[in-house]
Amino acid sequence: MVEQNAIIKTINLNCFYDNLQVLRDINIEVYRNEILGIIGPANSGKTTFLRALNRLNSLNINYRQKGVIVFEGQNTQDIPDSLIRRKIGIIFAMPQVLPVSIYENIAYGPKVHGIRDKHRVEQLVEESLKKAFVWDELKDRLKTPATKLSGGQQQRLCIARTLAIEPDVILYDEPCSGLDPISTAKVEDTMSLLAQSYTQILVTNNTKQASRVSHRCAFFLMGELVEVDQTRKMYTHPSDPRTDDYITGKFG
């Protein structure tokens, strides 16, 4: 199922906020169509790593970065911000919807990418909601404000909104941290089904979630990548004792 061909690769990635180094020499490959789980305690640099991939970190004026991120064989430094973010979408920790209708939330991405044809936009909205498995729940309420939806629905709406820009990679930044178990299960199901056509990276504080969803798993600790391996192997025979301690709950 997992093709051994890297879509994203980082080479000696170092990230800083002012003089504080939050990531140290990260070398990792993300394979096409896999779900890569990223686990680790708070302040281990997971989110910074994720946001480095689609350059959202650069919105913080104190942020600096060294090293190379390769996307589809190309150094991302040579790709404009808007293009890299269109290819690598992100789902934030808290469901973040714009204060407009469900329809307008999803149509926003396609519209800024210059799709003016109304039918094409409508079609994209429908396709995206179907791919995110919320079409049946929301199809009759497309004109209602997105803020009126429940947290779980909002989060899946966010997934649909990201799918509407037709990315290759989807980043999830603790997507279920504010959701109840049933909504969480729905988001996880959605991720598993999306794995057929998308590369996904899941940052989570919940080690069980990573074991349920991910194909491979990376363990970050204090800004360093401790190990990355097949999830099943990592959860049964981790090669580093620190991983074992974290997964079994000795710290974290």
Binding site: S82, L98, Y108, G109, V112, R161
Partner: peptide, 13 residues
């Protein structure tokens, strides 16, 4: 700030 992040993350300039 979140509105700007949403928009930028969707590839808007």
């Amino acid at each position: 700030m979140v509105y700007r992040e949403i928009s930028l993350s969707l590839g808007a300039t």
